[in-house]
């Protein structure tokens, strides 16, 4: 069985016919061909696949493509404009908030969500807000610094 879906990804609508069991993350990577969204586990722990669905961060491995029908997704490929990093991306770069880069797309969206809810978070709130995202390289410290830096540069306007 297959079902038609229309999912807008980074501003472009994609009309496709998919199996109902297809995960959103596989839709993004294998159907649309945007491989910036990563898969780091199969139990929804790692958060590497985090994207924005209608402006809210979700783990795209916990959502079926058919559930996302009619919605608008932002992936890591959709953040920079004309090669210019946005404030969060730039903060991760400035504060050495990434090493191997694999968890990074998910971290950036976890940070985006955090700042959306708490525009001026404390370090503790940031650490708590990153609970659902795992990084094995950085020990998280520079990710926390990057988010603090982004919060400061955005001045509460995430």
């Amino acid at each position: 069985m297959t079902l038609p879906v229309t999912i807008t990804v980074n501003g472009r609508p994609h009309e496709r016919v998919v199996e109902p069991r297809l995960l959103l993350v596989h839709f993004l990577r294998d159907v649309v061909g945007l491989t910036g969204t990563k898969i780091g586990c199969d139990t929804s722990q790692c958060g590497s696949c985090t994207v924005l669905l209608d402006g809210t961060a979700i783990k795209s491995c916990t959502c079926l493509a058919v559930q996302a029908d009619g919605s608008s997704i932002t992936t890591i490929e959709g953040l920079a404009t004309e090669g210019r990093l946005n404030a969060l991306q730039d903060a991760f770069w400035s504060k050495h908030g990434l090493q191997c880069g694999f968890c990074t797309p998910g971290m950036v969206f976890a940070a985006h969500e955090l700042l959306r809810v708490h525009p001026q978070p404390s370090a503790e709130e940031i650490r708590h807000g990153l609970e659902g995202n795992m990084c094995r390289c950085t020990g998280y410290q520079n990710i926390v610094r990057a988010i603090e830096h982004a919060a400061a540069s955005l001045g509460g306007n995430a």
Binding site: G36, W93, L98, F102
Partner: peptide, 21 residues
């Protein structure tokens, strides 16, 4: 200095093995 690796990693343009099609 900032790492030159990072812009590609931060924009989803880096290619890992599973991204090869």
């Amino acid at each position: 200095i900032r790492r030159r690796e990072d812009p590609r990693l931060l924009t989803g343009t880096a290619r890992y093995t599973d991204d090869v099609v």
